[in-house]
Computed example of a mutant assay.
Amino acid sequence: MKKDQLLTRRRALIAGAAALGAAGTAGALALGGGEEPVRRTPAPAPAAGPKPHSAPASSAYRLQPLTGYGGPPRAAPAKLPVRHEPFLRMPGRGRTIVLTFDDGPDPRYTPHILDTLAEYEVRATFFVCGEMADWNRDLLSRMADEGHVVGNHTWSHPLLTRLRRSKIRSEMERTSDVIEKAYGERPQWFRAPYGAWNRAAFQLGAELGMEPLAWTVDTLDWTTPGTRSIVHRVEDGAAPGVVVLSHDAGGNRSQTVRALRTWLPHLLDSGYHITVPRRRHA
């Protein structure tokens, strides 16, 4: 290759590098780095019609507030197997008894029951009706503070076997909502009014994260048989793992209140331990 041809090629390379440097300088000035504004050729007018939607930068998208955001979503209840019958007994070590009260809370009787349980440092399970709990949320708060378990006993204590599936769900969900607001967490146990269970009750209870619990010993206190009769029923039926059914609402429960003050210390002195139901499925 001749000398003049080499010089011509070198000059072309130098000119190209200079052009690239000038373009970089112009870009820097366009970002505000220079003292004089950079004049750019105006872009052609867009064509008629709707403008295409361009995706925002990822960081900008993450920083945009979410419309109607009300905090983290509530965790879905744990999936439980659908049972075909309720629990009648609770397994445990030693001479343990599960004490349950239905239909409350009632400000005339529930506080006295809570006082007796507190005196003997005993925890019980209260299956509450939503319409009662809604008017007595302070009592559910006290139950939470004193370590008692609160279960779902429907909203209005209906006979579930005569209700449509949608109505049963409403009875359960409304009650669970009230319990969560007053007690601090959603119930893990459910009891059908009158002990009338059906397939829909078992299925919906499991969907809502609740286990079905019935009873072993019925005090029949709802018939107001007399304080002594209630005491005898509990003491005669006492055995490891039994679930005792009493009521703290739904009528005059003064006999229940008096009976508890008698049979509770007797069973404790006999070596029984009053406990609350334990979930088999976490």
Score class of each variant (00 low, 15 high):
241 G>A: 01
244 V>Y: 00
72 P>W: 06
281 H>Y: 04
225 P>G: 06
230 I>R: 09
199 R>P: 04
170 S>H: 12
110 T>C: 13
36 E>Q: 10
67 T>V: 05
37 P>V: 13
6 L>P: 03
141 S>L: 08
175 T>I: 07
91 P>L: 05
204 L>G: 07
88 L>M: 12
40 R>E: 15
48 A>K: 02
55 A>E: 09
125 T>S: 06
15 A>K: 15
72 P>V: 03
43 A>P: 14
270 S>Q: 04
184 G>S: 06
100 T>D: 04
163 L>Q: 10
224 T>S: 09
185 E>D: 12
245 L>K: 04
149 V>L: 10
248 D>R: 01
214 A>F: 03
256 T>N: 01
29 L>Y: 12
236 D>H: 13
99 L>H: 02
231 V>A: 08
97 I>D: 01
176 S>R: 06
7 L>E: 14
76 A>P: 03
25 T>I: 14
156 S>E: 09
30 A>W: 14
231 V>H: 09
253 R>K: 06
59 S>T: 02
39 R>P: 15
6 L>Y: 11
190 F>C: 02
255 Q>E: 12
240 P>G: 08
118 A>S: 11
132 M>V: 08
93 R>M: 14
88 L>G: 11
29 L>H: 07
235 E>S: 13
205 G>F: 02
138 D>M: 06
61 Y>F: 03
214 A>C: 07
222 W>S: 11
213 L>E: 03
82 V>G: 10
27 G>I: 11
16 G>E: 05
80 L>G: 03
190 F>Q: 03
77 P>Y: 04
197 W>C: 02
44 P>L: 09
257 V>F: 01
282 A>R: 01
54 S>I: 06
192 A>Q: 10
71 G>Y: 05
8 T>Q: 14
119 E>D: 12
259 A>Q: 00
96 T>H: 05
97 I>R: 02
30 A>Q: 13
126 F>T: 06
36 E>L: 10
212 P>K: 02
126 F>A: 05
35 E>V: 10
146 E>P: 05
87 F>N: 04
158 P>A: 10
19 A>V: 06
242 V>Q: 00
233 R>T: 01
205 G>S: 08
107 P>E: 08
218 D>L: 08
56 P>A: 09
119 E>Q: 09
215 W>C: 03
164 R>W: 14
183 Y>W: 15
259 A>D: 00
117 L>C: 13
103 D>E: 15
200 A>W: 04
156 S>I: 11
146 E>D: 09
244 V>K: 02
40 R>N: 15
135 W>Q: 15
216 T>Q: 05
192 A>H: 09
93 R>E: 05
178 V>G: 02
55 A>N: 11
138 D>P: 07
189 W>C: 00
231 V>T: 05
145 D>F: 08
160 L>C: 11
200 A>E: 08
152 N>R: 12
208 L>W: 09
74 R>D: 12
189 W>L: 01
74 R>K: 13
19 A>W: 08
73 P>H: 10
193 P>D: 03
102 D>E: 09
260 L>G: 00
40 R>Y: 15
